[in-house]
């Protein structure tokens, strides 16, 4: 079956099985592999993308539910890796293995979009569903704070 949606500003149309998820469609059909497979049951956050500007878990999102909507992956977040969060994540040297980081950044981006100056507790509550086995949590918090500050300037 065919699904049409806007992906990182471009109109795309994909032919998939009916039970296909957004995650595997992005990764294996459209070859946008920044969005990662971690758990498949929406509990780790590695597959986080934006659906009409809301952070969602693409691993549990049926492809049918994105029809006509706007999907943004980290490939579409910043030009040349220059989104304030991307810059801050580099400055704070956040990633270790890096596998969860696209999801972390995409999750954080929706926080800053709605709350340009989040408190520590607000950051934690917004980010708590995104797991990082390398344990970069404290650097993630620092980077989000930094990106928020940069944005205020």
């Amino acid at each position: 079956m065919k699904t049409s949606f806007e992906l990182n500003g471009n109109n795309v149309s994909v032919d998939t099985a009916e039970d296909a998820t957004l995650l595997w469609t992005l990764r294996e059909r459209l070859q946008l592999t920044s969005t990662k497979f971690g758990c498949g049951i929406s509990v780790c956050g590695a597959c986080t993308v934006h659906l009409d500007r809301v952070a969602v878990r693409s691993c549990s999102m049926p492809i049918t539910s994105v029809e006509g909507k706007k999907v943004t992956t980290i490939e579409g977040l910043g030009e040349n890796n220059d989104h304030p969060l991307q810059v801050a994540f580099q400055e704070e040297q956040v990633p270790q293995c890096g596998y969860c980081q696209s999801g972390q950044i995409m999750q954080a981006a929706t926080l800053l979009a709605s709350n340009p100056n989040p408190s520590r507790d607000q950051i934690i509550s917004h980010m708590d569903g995104n797991l990082c086995r390398c344990g970069t949590y404290n650097r993630i918090i620092k980077a989000i704070n930094k990106a928020a500050e940069e944005d205020q300037l």
Binding site: S34, I74, E75, L85, Q90, V94, P95, G98, S102
Partner: peptide, 11 residues
């Protein structure tokens, strides 16, 4: 900075 970090912030 680590060499691999930039590529791990944009996927």
């Amino acid at each position: 900075p680590r060499y691999d970090v930039p590529s791990k912030t944009d996927g």
